[in-house]
Design a protein around this nucleic acid. Structure first.
Lengths: 139, 139
DNA sequence: TTTAAAGTTACGTCACTTACTAATGTATTG
DNA sequence: CAATACATTAGTAAGTGACGTAACTTTAAA
């Protein structure tokens, strides 16, 4: 199954915000979208979801923009995926009254939980281009 | 992201085949579809994919049908998911020339690999309704 | 050797989702 | 109050998923 572009874009936008986290300034949508080669309009919608999930903070009006709500070490892939996708990363349907439907569903729920654990181990700081964390495993 | 119904159905059909694996007889599509409450027509298409992946064997002609190609202990969720979905379970796009696109993609590739490992630990035999394996963790 | 039962393949399709664009509203600052 | 930047909603075109339909092929049994 395909990872939604929306989720990938969210990772990129947050990584971009993380790259200037130390400077403590806001970044405007236009700026973020250009750096990550994304549509500004679409980026706004993604940022709105991220704000509602508490991952970013926005300031409106002149000189407004966005900044991370937490340190890049304290945001994980699990946080991002859950923010964009809702309750679970892999969502399986509850079943269709078939004999094995219940067991199959339960198995995928387990898989989703294990997946969440894995995603919790990848920090946003590792996604930042040029960070010292990225050298050993990044391609 | 949603687990495709096709993949869930494949699990159900295989679990159904596994439930009569000891009897060594073939099961017809109609039989399997009724037991799992699925559309017979759609089940045919799923079984075709499973056959091409080497998970089931088919016999044509009168008294034909399907049977598992391996013991239910030797088929895992990873086998099933890969058969239905292709090279990877979670497929992320290679990137869009944004600054963080490469790192984000690489991270999700890692997640997919970890996910595959988890899926390798769930055997088809555990999905069979009423099996002795299902009591401790099944809902 | 017919015949009917079964799998095989290809094509069609309709509703839904995704990834956007566009337009309008709202808050903040100088 | 005017300029600026975020917020929200609506619209849409293309793609995908989950089927249904139909014609074909193979095989066992009568």
């Amino acid at each position: 199954m395909r990872l939604p572009l929306k989720t990938e874009y969210a990772c990129q936008i947050l990584a971009q915000l993380a790259s200037t986290y130390a400077e403590e300034g806001v970044r405007q949508v236009e700026d973020l979208a250009v750096a990550e080669n994304l549509s500004p309009n679409y980026s706004v919608q993604i940022l709105t979801v991220l704000r509602q999930a508490g991952l970013v903070i926005s300031r409106r009006g002149k000189n407004g923009g966005y900044l991370l709500a937490k340190h890049p070490d304290e945001i994980t892939l699990a946080d991002i995926a859950l923010a964009m996708e809702g309750g679970s990363i892999i969502e399986s349907s509850p079943g269709n009254e078939g004999m094995s439907a219940g067991n199959v569903h339960a198995a995928w729920v387990r898989v989703n939980e294990a997946l969440l654990e894995n995603c919790r181990e990848i920090k946003l700081s590792e996604l930042v281009a040029g960070s010292e964390d990225d050298s050993d495993w990044m391609i």
